[in-house]
């Protein structure tokens, strides 16, 4: 089972490799010309263009280029972007770090809030708390990620300027490690919150429906009869039993988080991978587009494979 999952994902990876390679090349226009054309560059003559083409690896048929690209990937070489004059790995590694940082910051927010609210609502289905929470979550679910991001930006960074509106750190970071880390956290707070909001809803509804079905189970009725209430009831009895369902939902959440990060990073000009991808698409930087999409899908596929495997192992253990 575990192995099949892995092979499946390997297959997807190969498919994506080909798609990400060919799709950008179907775009109209010659990447070399896009790269060299601006209002200021002089026109090159044919000989010069050919010289550049050879230099920049745009020589040869698409198939040759694909082979070279695939071969490089197998050796861990993501290629070289001539637009940025840098190896692609250098271009995307730091933004990837920022994006993962945002996601990791958002993770506890949406997990704790979503699951806690879900349990609270599911403890007494159709009660007052449930109706209020479900209503609120439905409202929250109706806000697309970019609306949420713009809203937070507007309220907390523009109307009440208490948090930074853009970037990942101040122009001139503080000297001390701790102070700097705090500044980075401050900058990440709004984007992470915007990112978390949408996922809160997802986990709320999962936790709620699980909690509703748990609420009628004998062991819980039993526990309540023994006077177990409060935190212990919610964590030990509900939380523990809801865990597998939450974990399995986490595997598709990751893909949602990545696409959410794209919008959030654009709104907050956060220097993450979404912004890199967005700019690369505008600039037709094929090699960066390919590698970013590939890397992101490797992350998504890898992450949900790991989660699936863990859930599988967990359920086998009983």
């Amino acid at each position: 089972m575990v192995l099949i999952g892995f092979v499946n994902r390997l297959l997807i990876f190969a498919l994506l490799l080909v798609i990400t390679f060919y799709l950008p090349r179907l775009l109209p226009g010659d990447p070399l010309e896009v790269m060299v054309a601006s209002e200021y560059t002089r026109g090159l003559n044919a000989g010069e263009i050919q010289q550049l083409r050879i230099h920049m690896g745009f020589e040869g048929s698409w198939l040759d280029q694909l082979a070279a690209y695939g071969f490089g990937i197998l050796h861990g070489d993501l290629g070289y972007s001539f637009r940025h004059a840098a190896p692609v790995a250098d271009i995307i590694i730091q933004p990837l770090g920022w994006t993962l940082f945002l996601i990791l910051l958002a993770l506890p927010i949406f997990l704790v809030t979503g699951v806690a609210c879900g349990i609270e609502a599911g403890r007494q289905p159709h009660g007052g708390i449930d109706r209020f929470l479900t209503g609120a979550m439905t409202l929250l679910a109706s806000l697309p990620p970019f609306v949420m991001a713009i809203g937070l930006l507007l309220v907390f960074a523009i109307l009440l300027p208490i948090l930074p509106a853009s970037g990942a750190q101040p122009l001139f970071p503080a000297q001390g490690m701790v102070a700097h880390a705090l500044q980075i956290l401050r900058h990440a707070l709004l984007p992470a919150l915007a990112l978390a909001m949408h996922e809160i809803v997802r986990f709320f509804f999962v936790a709620r429906s699980e909690a509703i079905s748990l609420s009628t189970r004998p062991f819980l009725l039993n526990a309540r009869a023994r006077g177990i209430y409060g935190v212990r009831e919610r964590v030990d009895y509900y939380g523990r039993n809801i865990f597998p369902a939450i974990a399995s939902r986490l595997s598709d959440a990751f893909s949602g988080l990545i696409s959410g990060a794209l919008f959030v990073e654009i709104v907050f000009s956060y220097p993450g991978i979404g912004l890199v991808l967005y700019k690369a698409i505008g600039e037709r930087d094929y090699i960066v587009i390919q590698s970013t999409v590939l890397l992101l899908s490797v992350f998504i596929l890898g992450f949900n494979w790991i989660i699936d495997t863990l859930v599988l192992l967990h359920s086998r253990r009983g």
Binding site: Q94, L96, L104, Q169, P173, H180
Partner: peptide
């Protein structure tokens, strides 16, 4: 992964 963003430190003046 939390270390990655901090790579930016080295460049800050």
């Amino acid at each position: 992964t939390a270390l990655w963003p901090f790579l930016g430190f080295a460049l800050s003046p």
